[in-house]
Simulated assay, not measured.
Amino acid sequence: MTLNFVRIAYAYDRTRYHPPEVSGKIATAIVAPVEERFSDPVFLELGVGTGRVGVPIVARGYRFVGVDVSPSMLEVMRYKIAGVGRKVKLVEADARELPFERGSFHAVIGVHIWHLFDDWQRALLEAFRVLTPGGFLFEGWDMTAAENEDWRIQEKWREFLGEEGYELKRGRHQQRLAEVRKALEQLGLNPVEEVVAEWVEERTPRQSLEILSERLYSFTWGIPEDIFKSSLEKLWEWARDTYSDLDQAHAIPWRFVLRSTRLPE
């Protein structure tokens, strides 16, 4: 299965966004503790994507470096920061092999990234390597309650995939976050988690279906194309029979969790 990362980049940016007030709260939660301890800090974001976390930091005038393996994602972000990106550097690179000197950054940010690597330990060690003593590691993720229409649609799709002989495995992201936390604690560090923003998204069944169709979630990437196509056809048919209006929005409550870990001086 070959993914069209140009298409995915623009679709991701269109659908996986934070409202402006939420983006502001997340940026403040990240930059405030760093600014208290360092003068003219430099931020690095791993898997920067299209910049939904990075752009608000850039807009505040901080020095910022973003890395991603997808040139398409970086191109979308580059377009978004045109005119305000004087202190920004975007680099096509793997988080497990960063092209930066030891102690180059005062803060490293990783949002929804650890579950993308089987060997996530390499990325974590690289983050530590490029952090200055006393620097911060910030991990962030979106969370929502399971009881909503979007989740119901995904679970119905899981049933159709099962009928096709494919077992859709979920929960890797949360499992990986727990593994990383354990690793941090074993190193004698003190990761602290905090809900820094809450909001409600209005999403229609059609949008939920389109997000799955675009393969925007990483758990969709490994599904063989024939099974993916046939199961989605069943899902669309089920949705048309289930919802009187595919464009009637439903509410999804979200929270953004930030885990902060400060290295020793």
Score class of each variant (00 low, 15 high):
249 A>L: 07
262 R>P: 06
52 R>T: 11
115 H>V: 01
132 T>Q: 04
247 D>F: 15
60 R>T: 09
76 V>K: 05
66 G>P: 11
12 Y>S: 01
219 F>R: 11
133 P>K: 09
80 K>S: 15
113 I>W: 11
150 D>V: 01
156 K>Y: 01
192 V>K: 12
104 S>Q: 06
24 G>D: 07
149 E>A: 01
136 F>D: 04
191 P>Q: 07
84 V>C: 09
87 K>M: 08
6 V>E: 15
256 F>V: 06
183 A>L: 03
137 L>N: 08
97 E>G: 03
166 Y>R: 15
125 L>F: 01
184 L>G: 14
157 W>P: 01
135 G>K: 01
33 P>K: 02
224 P>E: 06
25 K>R: 13
23 S>K: 08
215 R>D: 02
131 L>C: 05
7 R>C: 04
126 E>K: 01
161 L>K: 08
164 E>H: 10
131 L>R: 02
219 F>A: 08
83 G>Q: 06
195 V>H: 15
86 R>N: 12
38 F>W: 05
100 F>W: 06
173 H>Q: 10
3 L>N: 13
29 A>P: 11
146 A>N: 00
110 G>A: 14
152 R>F: 02
31 V>D: 10
258 L>V: 13
95 A>R: 03
202 E>I: 04
202 E>R: 14
63 R>F: 08
62 Y>G: 14
31 V>W: 04
146 A>F: 00
145 A>N: 06
158 R>T: 09
45 E>M: 02
112 H>T: 03
265 E>Y: 00
245 D>Y: 15
63 R>K: 13
176 R>Y: 02
264 P>D: 09
68 D>C: 13
251 A>Q: 08
204 T>P: 12
58 V>A: 15
239 A>F: 03
25 K>N: 12
70 S>P: 15
104 S>G: 10
105 F>Y: 12
257 V>T: 09
133 P>N: 08
47 G>F: 15
184 L>I: 05
254 W>R: 15
13 D>W: 12
231 S>T: 07
163 E>W: 11
264 P>M: 06
245 D>Q: 07
127 A>P: 01
115 H>C: 12
187 L>Y: 03
145 A>K: 08
29 A>Q: 04
160 F>S: 11
1 M>A: 13
141 W>D: 10
187 L>A: 14
216 L>N: 04
209 L>V: 04
227 I>E: 11
94 D>I: 11
83 G>M: 10
153 I>V: 03
82 A>W: 09
111 V>Y: 13
201 E>D: 15
86 R>H: 14
124 L>S: 13
40 D>N: 13
81 I>W: 10
73 M>Y: 11
234 K>Q: 10
23 S>D: 05
211 I>N: 04
137 L>K: 00
180 V>H: 06
25 K>H: 08
35 E>G: 03
146 A>H: 00
184 L>P: 15
188 G>S: 10
